[in-house]
């Protein structure tokens, strides 16, 4: 006999686990950030089933913001955020699989072998009111400590990520990584500004350009570089 709650629980659990697994299996980074959000939403809904209405909705609320920021950072830093050209972004995979499976097996064994106490939540308990009273009553010091920790985090984040610092800009002398050990830095290296447009091959004036063939053509190097026009 399967009750509706059980059915809902196992469906949500399947969503949480499958989307949590797909996070590391999709090429598009934005998709993987929002798959993780899906996993969090499923866990939040399980919390609602467990009669934690505040915690469940707050998880969804908070993780929505976090994963939005996560997606922005993905696009900002990753080489291939949309996954349009698949590339291998995995290392030490076998070790990682073994570690993950071992962690699951160990925790599952612990769950299975432990005689878990069974004192379920009493129906009709005002859990939200109790949480508020706990946060701003007996456990206020703990709660406030969390608040101060968050403040310290904000300051630390600004200090760590700001470009300017006491010893000059954080990115002074920074070079892209090399493709081979000891080789040349990959990618563009910032050069001193010179008149020419070295590097830009095929800079023939476009026939579609109204100024093509005019005397000013000889000064093409003095104009700001315009990329060749693309016609769909």
């Amino acid at each position: 006999m399967v009750s509706g709650t059980d059915l809902a629980f196992w469906t949500l659990a399947a969503i949480a686990i499958v989307s949590g697994w797909r996070v590391f299996r999709t090429d598009s980074m934005v998709r993987s950030a929002f798959l993780l959000l899906l996993s969090f939403i499923a866990v939040g809904l399980i919390m609602l089933l467990l009669r934690a209405p505040y915690l469940g909705v707050a998880t969804i609320f908070m993780m929505g913001v976090e994963m939005m920021v996560m997606a922005l950072f993905m696009v900002m830093f990753m080489m291939n955020p949309a996954g349009l050209n698949p590339m291998n972004m995995v290392h030490q995979e076998r070790f990682a699989i073994v570690a993950g499976v071992l962690a699951f097996a160990g925790l599952a064994a612990a769950v299975w072998l432990t005689d878990l106490p069974h004192h379920p939540l009493v129906a009709g308990r005002p859990v939200i009111r109790e949480l508020g009273m706990e946060l701003l009553g007996r456990s206020m010091l703990i709660f406030e400590t969390a608040g101060v920790t968050l403040l310290a985090t904000m300051i630390g984040t600004v200090v760590l990520s700001s470009r300017s610092g006491r010893f000059g800009p954080a990115d002074a002398g920074s070079l892209p990584p090399t493709m081979t050990p000891g080789g040349m830095p990959a990618g563009r290296i910032p050069k001193k500004r010179s008149g020419g447009h070295g590097g830009h091959g095929g800079h023939a004036p476009s026939a579609a350009s109204p100024t093509a063939g005019e005397p000013a053509h000889g000064h093409a190097n003095d104009h700001p570089h315009q990329p060749p026009e693309h016609h769909a």
Binding site: F9, A16, I17, F24, F77, H91, I97, A99, A103, L116
Partner: peptide, 29 residues
């Protein structure tokens, strides 16, 4: 929906997360 079942699901999430944290090259991942 026993406590065992909930903890098993949580264990699966932790195992997956550990796999991801160890296997991914990118910091954000």
């Amino acid at each position: 929906m026993s406590l065992q079942a909930i903890l098993l699901v949580a264990a699966a999430l932790i195992g997956l997360g550990l796999y991801g944290a160890l296997s991914q090259k990118s910091f954000v991942m």
